[in-house]
């Protein structure tokens, strides 16, 4: 565990040093993120110009959800996207062998080696929007609500990571997964709104099949509508199960990879 944390810190440091080289990127990125956030808020405004609530959520509740969305979106762009595209390249060009030869956990290495450091601004600003929405609503959450938010938020990060990791692991079996990441990001846009917006089958699919409902709606609910212990439990167990599943799939993939290339 300590080894894992040390590695993660080292990866973060390495990517920071790498990116300081492009300092305009930092300012540029901050600007981009800020603007995108402002435009997202503006977009919510447009929907609320004609309605007091969307799917039973008030304006500030939707803003809070947008904050969660932005933070998780930032996490994807900071950590998942850069590493996963490299994994695909590694497999395609056969350079994965070098990774496998390193004396560290290979899944950890391919998942976190390259991060786009500046994207951390997305996460910070997203959480900032959550706080802003809370202040505007004037109802400060109980500490139970805050704890369950962080539990659900962590579960959401685990879920997103697991889904990405599984999609990318598919590339071991010669699927063009770069496209899957594009599809994922397209469908992930559905998480900008509470799942109650979607009707019928679509809502079920977004809750359980492609669980964006669990990823943004549920953490946001913890601070607004409240969540039951039952929901907490399900989300936690599901997140752990998903991560365990990636572990299994990774092992399986490595086995087929090493037997194929020898």
């Amino acid at each position: 565990m300590r080894q894992t944390l040390r590695l993660l810190r080292e990866f973060l440091r390495a990517c920071f040093v790498e990116e300081v080289e492009y300092r305009l990127n930092f300012i540029g990125h901050l600007l981009t993120t800020g603007l995108q956030l402002a435009l997202a808020v503006f977009m919510a405004n447009i929907f609320f110009f004609r309605a007091d609530s969307v799917g039973g959520w008030s304006f500030y509740e939707v803003l809070l959800l947008l904050g969660v969305f932005n933070a998780i979106h930032g996490f994807i762009e900071m950590v998942l996207q850069p590493n996963m595209s490299r994994l695909v390249q590694h497999i395609r060009k056969g350079t994965l062998d070098y990774v496998l030869l390193k004396p560290v956990d290979s899944q950890l290495f391919v998942s976190f080696r390259h991060m786009v450091f500046w994207k951390i601004a997305d996460i910070v600003l997203g959480l900032g929007l959550v706080v802003f929405a809370l202040v505007q609503m004037g109802a400060w959450p109980t500490w139970q609500a805050i704890v369950s938010f962080f539990v659900l938020f962590s579960a959401a990060l685990c879920l997103v990571y697991a889904i990405w990791m599984m999609l990318m692991t598919l590339s071991f079996w010669a699927v063009k997964v770069d496209n899957l990441s594009y599809l994922f990001m397209s469908f992930f846009d559905t998480a900008r709104f509470p799942v109650s917006v979607y009707k019928g089958f679509l809502r079920l699919a977004l809750m359980y099949l492609f669980p964006v409902g669990l990823i943004t709606t549920l953490p946001a609910s913890a601070l607004t509508k409240g969540v039951s212990v039952w929901q907490l439990l399900v989300a936690g167990v599901l997140a752990l199960a998903f991560v365990a599943l990636t572990r299994l799939l990774w092992r399986l993939a490595l086995r087929s990879y090493t037997s194929a290339s020898s």
């Binding site: 929907f47 799917g55 559905t190 709104f193 917006v197 979607y198 009707k199």
Partner: peptide, 8 residues
Amino acid sequence: ISLAVWLT
């Protein structure tokens, strides 16, 4: 998505 929101 926009359609879903407007329908709601």
